[in-house]
Amino acid sequence: MSVENFLVEMLASVPHWLAVMVIGAIPVSELRGAIPVALGIYGMEPVEAYFLSVIGNLIPVIPLLLFLEPVSGYLRRYRIFDIFFTWLFSRTRRNHTKNFEKYGLLALTLFVAIPLPVTGAWTGCAAAFVFGIRFKHSFPAIAAGVLIAGVIVTVVTLTGIGLAELILGA
């Protein structure tokens, strides 16, 4: 069973608009899961699916950007978390510093905009924290990336649904 199907079953008693927002807010699915569910399972109009998914995906961004630093600082008191965060931050800096130095906030926007696993708003917030990008700069960059990713996922999903209907003769 896919993550999206599991979430749809878990949210069966919730109104569809709210289910789409919740799916969009969850880090394992974000809008990459919410838009296909909204269009393919709930039969929503593309504009409605897009906006509900984007809003859902942006809801956790503000608390993540504001609270990652204090939560990380608190958890670093414990050796296992200190080891984990040290590894994560050094790995992230090693793999992405060149792009962030070269492209700045555009790199953050593009990173969030690419609708692939391990890219998205949640990971963008972590990257903004690791690179010390302040909220007033990181939020607009992440929001722009979410908007772009939403357009890409909507177009790809609609294309896929159209092809499926053409092939199946629906």
Rank of each mutant, 00 (worst) to 15 (best):
G40D: 07
V8L: 14
L7M: 15
P27N: 11
E69L: 07
V22E: 09
E48Y: 12
S90C: 10
I59W: 03
T119W: 03
A107L: 12
F6M: 10
G145I: 02
V112H: 01
H96K: 11
A38W: 00
L64I: 04
M1F: 08
F89M: 04
L88V: 08
I26M: 15
F85P: 00
M44T: 04
F139T: 13
A143K: 05
K98R: 14
W17L: 14
L116H: 08
G162E: 08
T97M: 14
L110M: 14
C125N: 08
S90F: 09
A49I: 02
N5L: 13
I161S: 10
P27Y: 06
V3D: 15
G43C: 11
A128N: 12
V155Y: 13
E45C: 04
E69H: 11
W122H: 02
I148P: 04
A38G: 04
A25V: 07
I59S: 02
A128V: 10
P36T: 06
L52Q: 12
L64E: 00
Y50W: 11
A121Q: 08
A49P: 00
G120R: 00
G150E: 06
E45L: 03
I83T: 05
V37S: 01
L52G: 09
G73P: 11
G33Q: 01
V130R: 01
T97A: 15
H16I: 08
V153Y: 02
T109Q: 05
A127P: 05
L52I: 14
Y103M: 11
G43W: 10
I114T: 08
G150I: 01
V8C: 12
N99D: 09
A121W: 06
G104F: 06
V47Y: 05
P60Y: 05
V118L: 12
H96R: 04
A149V: 02
L39Q: 01
T109G: 06
G169E: 13
P46T: 03
L7S: 05
I142T: 03
V151P: 01
F81K: 09
L147M: 14
P70M: 08
N57F: 14
L75S: 01
Y50K: 03
V37C: 03
A170H: 10
A141I: 03
P63D: 05
G162W: 10
G169I: 13
S53H: 04
F89C: 03
F51R: 07
V156M: 13
I148C: 04
G56A: 13
